[in-house]
Design a protein around this nucleic acid. Structure first.
Lengths: 132, 132
DNA sequence: GTAAGTGCAAACGGTTTGCAGCCTC
DNA sequence: GAGGCTGCAAACCGTTTGCACTTAC
């Protein structure tokens, strides 16, 4: 594992970032990842972490999401397209797949003559634990 | 309409912000709203716009969302909930209703023990005219 | 009169960028 | 050897905050 991205030059820094992403669970901010790298003794500049994450995101290798306060958080992505169910209290995130939604958006777009269709869908609520 | 919020002091600025939100469609950033107010001749400080939107959001009178680049966008909580089909070339927007989606999100949320559920859904594509 | 609300400008915090040197191919 | 990659520090940009002034009650 911990491979670098196909077309990117495999530098020490990129290997480190990719490797870290392969091991951690869930979403993490660029700064968190930068700190984690530091603690592992993998010295990587913060700017490089940002740049690498951006490239990985463009390449579709990581999911990007925004926390409620606007921070970008990253996670190596599970192959398939999916959406998120997010707790607006604790931020817990559950991945949701929705073949029905995919189909529906395509239908709607077709009906209105739209092509190159993409969509975003997020569900917000309060999770069982936070409702306590 | 254009009423101010129950517990807030009805100042000229708050009336202006609430009034604007009552008239515009869809999500807008604080800065957009501030500009719009300016164009209407309603002079309101940017900081005040931010503060007012925050209060309205806390009061549950507006929905807040984050754009892909981390900007906060606001919309008065709409009675008739619908979504948008947006042309990524010309920006044309078509409103779409989706009882099926509403039902589906509620189901998913229930299944995971989430309450106070809300959701956002936008569909992007290229419209017939722009594909031309 | 008093406390809440406002505007301004400065501070903030996450992110991006310019640039000089380094490393991969 | 050339061009991509890195680190640093400065720039950016949306948002928040401190403070003196104004306004609703």
């Amino acid at each position: 594992m911990a491979e670098t991205t196909g077309s990117l030059r495999p530098t020490r820094q990129r290997t480190a970032v990719a490797g870290l992403l392969a091991e951690v669970e869930g979403f993490h901010s660029a700064q968190e990842l930068h700190d984690l790298l530091g603690k592992r003794g993998e010295q990587v500049g913060l700017a490089t972490v940002y740049r690498t994450l951006q490239l990985l995101a463009e390449a579709g290798e990581v999911d990007v999401m925004r926390t409620e306060d606007g921070e970008a958080v990253y996670r190596r992505c599970s192959e398939s397209h999916h959406h998120h169910l997010v707790c607006r209290d604790c931020g817990a995130t559950i991945e949701v797949e929705a073949a029905a939604i995919e189909r529906w958006t395509r239908t709607i777009a077709d009906r209105h003559g739209f092509t190159e269709v993409a969509h975003t869908l997020e569900i917000f609520g309060v999770c069982a634990a936070c409702r306590g």
